[in-house]
Amino acid sequence: MIAKKRNLFLYFVFFLILIISIIGHLFSGQINISFSDYFDSIFNFDSENMNQLIAREFRIPRLTMALIAGAGLSISGMFMQTLFNNPLAGPYVLGINSGSSLFVAFTMMTGLSFFQTDFGIITSALIGALVFGFIILAFSLFVKSHISLLLIGLMLGSFTGAIISILQTFSSAQELKSFTIWTMGSLQHVQLSQLPIISIIFILGIGLSLFLIKPLNILVLGEKSSVILGLNIKTIRIATIGITALFAGIITAFCGPIAFVGLAVPNIVRSVFKTQSHGKLIVGNIFIGATFLVISDAIIQFLEQWIQLPINAFTSIIGAPLLILIVLKRLK
């Protein structure tokens, strides 16, 4: 009972922190935009007003993307950590980001686009994530142990890494630069018109995740015990990988690979809420994951007047020491 009250209190605290960081994000840019401008930009938009235009076209999409990417990557990281029973697993452990990177590299550095549209890079990244998601799903049908699956994912990563290196040697300086910038991740390239589709997929992913709560709760006991409790390991594996690919795929497509969030946040959530109940962990990951990326991006936005920091570098700078701190605390 005490634990229940404690967790409710924690949810409340983290929700407050999330709200505060959202407000902080909205007002951390170089140009000061008032609350009423934000309000009008959504409900009473005047395209002549510069501030409203910035709010609508840049700030709000960027904030929304930070919320979705933080929450989505954290949830999928948690899924992978439970599935592989390994706190070092993350959303990219199965090579979903490798797929995106490979296809984006092809698009950028060979001029050979898979889809000649305005946002060819996004479609390439999305297709890459889906293709690699399916490859790993296909493997998961035949592979018996989770460890072998993990190794296959890592090998896919090395393999694509090698191909990308080869592509890089043939590409021009300009192509190389734009690819490198893509790999650094960015929340700024999302457009308002793309938000509905991203949001719908995100909400769909959350809805599907609810069906993983029970199987993952059982899976912490190990594969053998889970089977004996009536769990179909293969179905669960496919469902978990599928939902992770959905989250990681859509986020990587629009933001590039964002490091560390999906690895650090689920570990933080587990040690803060001290539970193995995945329903509670999902809520915790949404709150803390979103907060983590919103704060990171708010700081980046604030520093933009002096320096352009890539989100990838920044999440690692905050995330790595945080994770070390947790590990040290746990070992005590």
Partner: peptide, 23 residues
Amino acid sequence: GVEYLTVEQYISLGRAPYTDAFG
């Protein structure tokens, strides 16, 4: 044993064959 898994939560997993899709 499993980290952060309480005795009661662990015992309740024994009900998995009877509970609904959300456990």
